[in-house]
Every structure is written in structure tokens, then in C-alpha cells.
Design a protein around this nucleic acid. Sequence first.
DNA 1: GCCTGATTGCAACAGGGTTGCATTTGCGGC
DNA 2: GCCGCAAATGCAACCCTGTTGCAATCAGGC
Lengths: 149, 149
Amino acid sequence: MPEFTPDFLAAQLRAASVKVTRPRLRVLACLSRAASALTHGELEERLAEGEGGGLDRVTLYRVLDSLLECGLAERTLDARGVYRFLLSSIRAAHAAHAHFHCQRCGGITCLEQMVAPVATLPTGFVARQVEIEVRGLCVNCSPVGGAAR
Amino acid sequence: MPEFTPDFLAAQLRAASVKVTRPRLRVLACLSRAASALTHGELEERLAEGEGGGLDRVTLYRVLDSLLECGLAERTLDARGVYRFLLSSIRAAHAAHAHFHCQRCGGITCLEQMVAPVATLPTGFVARQVEIEVRGLCVNCSPVGGAAR
DNA sequence: GCCTGATTGCAACAGGGTTGCATTTGCGGC
DNA sequence: GCCGCAAATGCAACCCTGTTGCAATCAGGC
């Protein structure tokens, strides 16, 4: 896990040939502090609370676009069809294994022991990610597991 | 594969304790003819072309809701975050293998040869579905594959 | 310190999906 | 076959997520 000092973040931006701007630093810092992938809305909220005040909606989208484009961040869809953003360095640690999506509470659990198989694709197709999603009920929500209802 | 005559479809609705209405029959028929999961927009188009004329946008959403609720249909998210609807009976045939989600056009392609592994879960967890999603660009959207741009 | 292209902020828009409400319709009971 | 009522339909209006156009501002190479 790298150090997420402002200087480190600025260096990351420079290394990615992207201009170092205050909004980008703030978004990076926010993402680096997040425990999990955040939606645009969640980021907007957190930025509004932090010092420096709110960030324009559209600017936030474009900052995120630039982070995606330079490879520092990635996005996935959550169960509602909303994009969630996270740092590539964090995501990398989750790429190899499967995830359990609880259909009741929406929680996500890592299944480290379930590893993604190699994709076998028809010619012309290009794979970027392979994701195994197991859906069902987690410990807390299954009648077997514990606190049902 | 069951017979998709109007009578059969009506019987399915009755069996699911749902009123038999013209919109529901038309939507069911359309879904039963579809080769793959359709978006709301695609369904709307097809219904507008068929005899009986267009169906109200909202009505279509509510018809789909009722089909979801009674278990006749299911929905999944495509790579763009748009819902795609399909008959449960058809979906069952796709449960075992992986699917390719094109990140550009949202299209879904079956990867029959990629089979879902058995889920190994922590105790207390209950699995209902295991889904392997390969994301990337399909033949039509990848620069390698064909009609790029 | 200056210049220029990239970035920001604002306004307006687009698509997918939902809600409220009046009207119509399926269908069980008579 | 007719009646009544809950369920379903259609229309209008709305919300949320994400995008586009454009003028003003700023980063950073010179």
C-alpha cells in the first residue's frame, strides 16, 4: 500500500503526464482514504464537507474521466447500475478473486479462495476484466447464518 | 423449451396469479421471441412495430415489474448500467456459463465454454447464483475485430 | 513573467427509470 | 350476461446519473 501524502499524489499525476490541479488532488486524496469504491454522488458529498468547499458536478465527472484515462482510477457498476470509482492500486488487489454480493443488504465480501479462470474468447473479442460474482445471502442475512430478518 | 403460444403465455400468467392483459401478453411474446436479454428501449421499439401499436413507456416498465415480481422474468445490468430483461425459463439455460459484456455497445455474448466454478463460501453464506462476467470490447466494437469507430 | 492549451465552472441537455393521478379493464360474484 | 372493485393502463411530470457546449481561468513550459 503506497503512501497517500499530497506530494505522493502529485507525483502520481505527474508520472501519468496529467496536470496537477487542486480538484484532482482532492479527488485522489478522497479516493485514497475510501474503504471501498465510491459513487460520484458520495464523492461529491465528501468533497463538499472537506475544506476547500464543494466541487462542480461536471468538474468532478471530468476529473474522474482524466483519472480513468491515465490509469490511476477505475470504475465498476454497482447493483443499481451506478458507477463506483476506486484507485487502480486498490482495485488491483481485488482483481484476481471473486466477490460475494449479498442480495439483501448489498454488502460485498471478498472470496479470496475463488480465483478467476482465464477467459477463452471468440476471435475479435478483447477482454479487459474477468469478474466472478457470487450472489446470495451473507452470514448476517441468511436464515442459516444468524440474525435473519 | 416450452411452447410460446398466446394461450400458453396466458396460462403462465394465470399460474403466477397475475391478471391476463393484452400488454402483458405482448411483452411476454416479445421476450419469448428474443434471442437475448432486451433493454426497455428495445422492447418498446419492437412493440411499436408489432400489431397493436406502441405501448406506453411507463406501462412497459410496470408490466416488466409485474413479470419480475411473479418470477416469469428476470433482469440483469448490462455493461452500460442499463437493465436487460429476459424470461426466467430462458435465463435458466444461461446460468451455467459465462457472459461477455461489451463496454461500448452494452451487448452480451455467451461464452459457453467458460463454466462457472463451484462456489466455496465461508460458513453461513448462501449462494443463489454464480455469474462470470468477462468485460471488454466485442467484435463489432474492438479495433482488432472489425467496424471500429 | 508570459502564452497557450488544458482545465474549470456554469448552464443546459439526454437517457433511463419512477411517481401521481385520472381512466379503463380483467374477472370474480351475482 | 351484468356489476363492482381492485388492478392495470396511459399520460404528464419528475428525479437521478451522466454528457455536451462554451466562456473564463489556470498550470506549467518557455
